[in-house]
Amino acid sequence: MDVGKVTRRRFLVRAALPTIAAGVGIGSPRLCALAQAAASVSVLPASGPGPMPVTLNVNGRAHELRIEPRVTLLDALRERLALTGTKKGCDQGTCGACTVLVDGRRVNACLTLAVMVQRKAITTIEGLADGDQLHPMQAAFLAHDGFQCGYCTPGQILSAVALLAEKRATDEASVREWMSGNICRCGAYPNIVAAVRSVAGQPS
């Protein structure tokens, strides 16, 4: 396929419908249909399989990378951006060590393709503290000994930060359940629960 040609053609389609394309979103079915009708004549431009430009906004900083589309967010962070605080425990979505926030919501970076989270705000453990001032959740994990080997810890902390925002951590049982996407093989769970509850202002 002649990628350049296709790209130009798509560009023309988009240029003809600038406001509509920008206005497409949830709750605008008419505009949506219109855009689809206009675009149906185009062929999607594809990138890859070789390296392609990808911009990641991590901890408030934009990073420009050239990576293959198969690079996960986790490997982009660890192997390309030297942000190794995000951990690879299973690479299969079964342990939660790679938990990061994307637009404020916790996700597993190992099953996220980096190319799909461009233009989104990514927060990793390195972006949590304010200079030397630990985030309250980091400080609570330290005070409550919410870890041993420390490998699952960044994921636990980001999960816990997200959990408080989700307003699901109403009691001890709910903290346990909603922290169950983060496996700790050292078995620090009771201390993790204590740390989360202390930040949530719950007596432990």
Binding site: A35, A39, V43, L44, A46, G48, P69, R70, V115
Partner: peptide, 18 residues
């Protein structure tokens, strides 16, 4: 993971066409 191409669809029709 095998190498693959990636495209982001802006509309259903072009996604389906792809």
């Amino acid at each position: 993971m095998n190498a693959f191409r990636y495209a982001q669809a802006r509309d259903a029709a072009s996604a389906m066409a792809a």
